[in-house]
Every structure is written in C-alpha cells, then in structure tokens.
Design a protein around this nucleic acid. Structure first.
Lengths: 240, 240
DNA sequence: ACAATAGTGTCTATGAGACAATATGGT
DNA sequence: ACCATATTGTCTCATAGACACTATTGT
C-alpha cells in the first residue's frame, strides 16, 4: 500500500487502474463425474471472445459489491440460484495481456454445490472435467484458472472434508466415499475410509436411513458444516 | 469475465474501477525468532495512515509490471535487495472500506528469505512476530493480512519444506530443525525429524561440514529448490 | 433362500514419538 | 580424558491398506 516513489500522492490516485473482475469455478458431481459450470460469452461486436465458453464472472461493481466474496456470491447465485455454497478463494491472476481490454486482475473463487435443485440460467451449462480441463476451448486464460482450481480441489480432497459439500445435506457413507473416488479418480478402501471419516468427527448420524433394494444405510450430515475438517494424513501415502 | 447485465459493453469499459495494489509479507528468521519486514507509511498530508507501520507494497504500475508476481518482486527487491526469494501468492482482499481512497483490491504475496546479506531500506525494519501479530499497530487492514500469512506459513510448515527457504543455501540438519521449531513454536524430536527430512529427499549433502567447538556437522542443500516438498503427514498428529 | 449392499474385524506395513546409545570433533 | 554436539538405533504406538467376514434389508 506504499505510494510508488514516482507518483504524486493525491487523496484519490488518478493514474491508470487495471480492470478488476471476479470469476467463479463452480464444481458439482453429476452423472458420476466432476463437472464445472460454464457460461457462453455474449456475442456483441466489441465483446472479447464472443460466443466462447467461459467461467462465470465479471467486473466488480463498486456500488453494489461490499467485498470480493460478495461479488463472487452474487455471480454464483445469478447463474445457479444457490445462495450458500462452500466458497473459497483460489487466488488472483493479473497481467497486461489476459484481457484485450487492458491490464486486468481477476480474483478467482471456487465453489462446491450439490447438483440437485440447481436451476441453471439459459447461457449456463455443466461440463465434465477430464483431467484438469474441459472439452471446449475456454475464453481468456480461463483454462489456466480452471486447471488451478481442479488442482487445488484434488489436492485438498486428499486431506479434507471438502467433497461433503458436493452432496446434499444428508448422505450415506457410501455416497460420500463415491464422491471422494470421483474427484480423486481412484478407488478408496471402504474400511479405512469409514474409520477415518468417523474418527475425525467429520459427520454425525441423523435418525434416518436410506431405503433401497438392499440393506438400508445410515444417513449422516456434516457435524460442523461451517468449517472443513483437515485429516492429519493424506489418503494414500503417495508422495507429491 | 462476463459483462454485467446492466452495463454497456464498450471495447474498454469505462465504469469506476477499484484501486489495485500488491502487498508483500516478507518473513525471515533472525535472533531466533520469526520476523516480518515492515515499512513506515509516508507522512504527506493526503497520505492514509501517515507514519504508521505497514506491509511493503503499493499500486500496480500498468506500464512497468508485467504481472502481479513481477510487481511483488519489484517491491520486495526495492526494500531488501533480494532478487530471488521464495514467493507464493496468499490471496486477495478487496472491499469498499479497506482504503480511505476508495474500493481497493490487494493481491498479497508472502516471501521467505534468509536474513543474512539483506540490505534494508531506511524506512524498513524487521519486527518479531508474536502469536500471529506484531507489536506496532499496522496501517489499513494489514494486521489481518499478516495474520493470514502467519497462519498459512505455520500451516504449511507442518507438512512442507518451506522453512528451508528461510536459511542460507547450505545448512546443517540441526539448523533446519531449529527453524522448524521457531516457526512452529514447539520442539520437534530430533530422530524423527532427520528420518523424515532425509526420507523425503528434501535435501542432499554437499562435501562440506560446519566446523565448531564440537563435532562438525554435515552441510546440506535443497535437492530441488524450485519446488517445495510435501510430506505425507503433518509433524505431529495433533488435529487442527 | 438369495442378491445386494452396509458395516466390522483382523493382519500387516509404515512412519512418528520417545529415548538411548554411539560417533567425532575441539580443548 | 572430557565436553558438546552429530548421528544412529531400538522400542512402542497409531493408523492406513488389504482383504475377509458378518449383518440386514427387499424380493
């Protein structure tokens, strides 16, 4: 926050300011796959990347957005109708070239929401994440932002309770394990998974069971939804 | 990056833009303590927080800064003379009130450097981190930024090789362990520490020893300085 | 009874923690 | 020889991984 030595120091600086945007990487699990919400860029003649798929986001509105997180929530709710997702800041990207309209900075958030009950806007669609990318070519540097978000998600899934936020509030342990396996793209051992999840106090049982064609399963919910749980070890001791 | 629906869409948007700054939390270990570099705010009549201690930082210069990291490096080198620190982005903070000059966004980086050989600028000084704060009251929301940086550092030190970047390029295992202990504020067990560090391939021996009043110690250097090593477990299995 | 999934137990390997023993330099 | 610190070894404990076994529902 120190004034640059070559600058004057008015009460409100008037030198060129970068553009400031917020982008949101919204993940869910649908169709047994990790999916991300993308929107189509508008088609206007002065629009950068017209018609291309992009992450939902846009300029910070200094009149309505109290802070960056509020801006991210506004954009997320506009596209999905979801008001209280798991939301975490991923980081910021800023350079002279990422937006043709000038030096721009974006603060990127990633959100985890359950797929059920989402009412998508018309210009929005779920796309399956393959590796750390999606099939269509993305606008701006959004492919890099998405790859960073997938990397962070996979990395944190190894030792936190994040996948629980991809499920409905009540779930069985088998369902929770399946979400871990989908995100990590590898099978986990049932016994060790259950032991760890229960020992960590991550979930607590609710007095309901999931009925089906076979033995009913105990339903659980997050014990402390407001704070993700961190496990003392990663899931399997593979380095890296 | 989507245009806000209420906006026009010119080639270069002209609605109000937030101020964009970069701040750097520069850590070192000096005098057996974790210390952070602070600078005094200038005294001008229109300056916010005149004379107060603050994190080094300032406005992005869209003409000279290629990207946010380059801006952080420029500010770090200006205060310390250090050109190649360990540098990691911590996140961004942005809201309407953190700077009296208007809606502002700051991208915060944290850097780890060895204390030796640093030539401080006159307005800069090292301050000991106590808990997750420093003794003087800081300008802007910098106390919160510092607390976040200390939290991230302590958290990552539990399972990564980050403390090695606080030392000179060649160090003994005892010196490395001492840095871990200083940052974590608790003693570590020698045997387990050495086993872990050596098993991870974090360091490699150099053909030199540190001579002293007693048995000389083998000197080591980072095996792959460009990428921090992640351990599969935290240092002690205390939850949290 | 049987299919299908839920949930538990047993054995082994790994690595951390605690603590002790040994090694090697200077004085 | 003695001190101080470096380095290694031994024992125990906790937990993950692998795999098998038992439990409980619907049909």
């Amino acid at each position: 926050m120190t004034r640059s030595p070559r600058r004057p120091s008015p009460a409100t600086p008037d030198w060129p300011r970068p553009l400031v945007t917020v982008d949101v990487v919204i993940f869910t699990v649908r169709e047994a796959a990790l999916q991300v919400l993308l929107v189509r860029r508008p088609e206007g003649p002065d629009e950068p990347w017209p018609g291309r798929w992009a992450l939902p986001g846009g300029f910070v509105d200094v009149e309505t957005d109290a802070d960056l997180a509020a801006c991210a929530l506004r954009k997320l709710e506009a596209k999905t109708g979801v008001a209280s997702p798991y939301l975490e800041q991923l980081g910021s990207w800023g350079d002279a070239r990422r937006d043709p309209r000038g030096w721009s900075v974006t603060s990127v958030y990633f959100a985890l929401i359950p797929a059920a009950g989402v009412r998508l806007r018309e210009d929005a669609a779920w796309h399956t994440v393959q590796g750390d990318a999606v099939e269509p070519e993305l606008a701006f540097d959004h492919a890099a932002l998405l790859a960073a978000a997938v990397g962070r998600l996979r990395s944190k899934v190894e030792y936190t309770s994040l996948p629980a936020y991809l499920l409905e509030p009540e779930f069985t342990l088998t369902e929770l394990q399946q979400v871990y396996e989908i995100v990590l793209e590898r099978p986990l051992e049932k016994s060790a998974f259950r032991t760890r999840v229960l020992a960590a106090g991550l979930v607590e049982p609710v007095p309901r069971r999931r009925e089906g064609a076979c033995r009913p399963a105990q339903l659980y919910r997050l014990a402390r939804p407001e704070e993700p749980v961190v496990f003392p070890r990663t899931f399997s001791p593979r380095r890296g």
